[in-house]
Design a protein around this nucleic acid. Structure first.
Lengths: 253, 253
DNA sequence: CGTCTAATTGAAGCATCTCAACATGCGTGG
DNA sequence: CCACGCATGTTGAGATGCTTCAATTAGACG
């Protein structure tokens, strides 16, 4: 995997394999899904609030985010989505979007018609359960974000976010040693953690001064993983990863 | 419905009918589910973190909450659950709990074995989809809570929470005009909104002074619904209720 | 009537925000 | 290849929303 293309091309099946074992047939069934691919520039909406969806979108490359805009115009990022994620699988069951989906970096997104997904699921209900499991894990990650934003303070909040992304990138093979590429501005980090960009900046400096995490541009180096986990109050159980996958990513194999 | 028993006895089918139309057969199939009923005192854990579940729990009466405890011992309430809710339906797909479930008032909970649910769903996949839809709506409510806790200030946060509960109680028929009974202490409201109990107290006084919401003990009277919605930055789309149900509850029929 | 929990109040402290200025870096067109 | 422009990062200082602590009051219940 070329590191310069770090957020490039992860298959849906690769992502799903981090949470469930898949057979060869299931992998090929997923690859065979009829998919229309589209590119989005950084900042472009992939889907917008109140929209009625007919397709689900698989992030093929890039970084995307679910978000809401509240009354006074502030944005809250609800979740971050890496290649292989399906950030709108709930649209199979809910008739309108209750949030937006934006490309934070240039993104390639594969769209699969709801009907095609339903056909596949009817043929292989086990595979349907895996897709639903992914959506349920989404829910679990939301719960952790509520706790993060609601009850932790700035330093911990940011550290926790980096811990989550570090693990999620690692299980996809999208990290090099302790380095991850993450095209996120400090303002976007603020939107994700419910903080101002200025405070994110100060907190990032604290993390660097404490020799936990060192960032230059989009490149973030985890200097002290146990320390970052401690400060970030991070425990990965809520990601519901398969045990061997998790152990490999946490370096506690 | 006797008002004194306000949080009493709502069937699962009643709850599900607020989001999808059900046939008579589906309603009786739900009623026929083999269910073991258990009572929990206020403050008792219905399920706890890391537990492996074999049953789903239907709240039959009372008020329950999902929660997490963060590193420094603070509690964050992730969602509130009214009669008819299934607060742990994700356990059908995830093998361990990533959060706790506590009874905030005395609760009766009906437990249905996973296998019984799977049998039912196999017999009626449409009904399965309704259950999944309820879980997806859970996710939607989580997203709104993230935005609430992350980007709104105290007054708005509390007002929003009351708006949500007001609508959710109304669609279940658990309100009398503009009055709802909600056995929540200010400390618990703080855990739900990510605020201190003291600040909740001050904010409640503001809401009363602004003639929006007036609370005496567990009894909360919505004095000015449009005003409360405005201050709470509340729009009910994220609850994904059926249109006729929603209109009736919002009083905009 | 006493006890316990929850609600209320005041005052001080702190985390975080806002505003505003300045620095840095990067892409683009001249 | 340099110069410019724009987005992002950084810094300081003052404002503020919220927390914490501690004391007091009010309500519910045996």
């Amino acid at each position: 995997m070329p590191f310069s293309d770090q957020l490039d091309r992860v298959r849906l099946s690769t992502q799903l394999q981090t949470i469930s074992e898949l057979t060869d047939e299931q992998r090929s069934a997923l690859s065979a899904l009829p998919m229309r691919t589209n590119s989005f520039a950084a900042g472009a909406d992939i889907a917008s609030e109140e929209e009625v969806s007919t397709h689900i979108g698989v992030i093929l490359s890039g970084l995307a985010a679910r978000y809401k805009i509240v009354g006074d115009g502030k944005r809250q990022i609800l979740s971050l989505h890496l290649p292989g994620d399906v950030p709108d699988s709930q649209s199979l069951y809910l008739d309108h979007m209750d949030h937006g989906l934006v490309a934070l970096s240039p993104c390639r997104v594969g769209f699969v018609a709801h009907d095609a997904v339903r056909d596949l699921v009817e043929r292989d209900p086990k595979l349907g359960a895996v897709l639903i499991k992914q959506a349920m894990i989404d829910g679990s990650i939301f719960r952790e974000w509520i706790a993060n934003v609601g009850r932790r303070q700035g330093l911990t909040r940011v550290a926790h976010l980096f811990c989550e992304l570090f693990v999620r990138l690692r299980v996809l093979g999208l990290s090099q040693d302790n380095v991850i590429l993450l095209p996120l501005t400090q303002s976007e980090l603020g939107d994700a953690t419910g903080m101002s960009a200025v405070h994110v900046n100060r907190v990032m400096q604290q993390l660097r001064a404490a020799r936990l995490l060192s960032s230059r541009g989009n490149q973030h180096t985890v200097v002290d993983w146990p320390g970052l986990r401690r400060v970030g109050d991070f425990s990965p159980a809520y990601l519901h990863l398969r045990l061997p996958v998790l152990s490999a990513a946490m370096g506690t194999a």
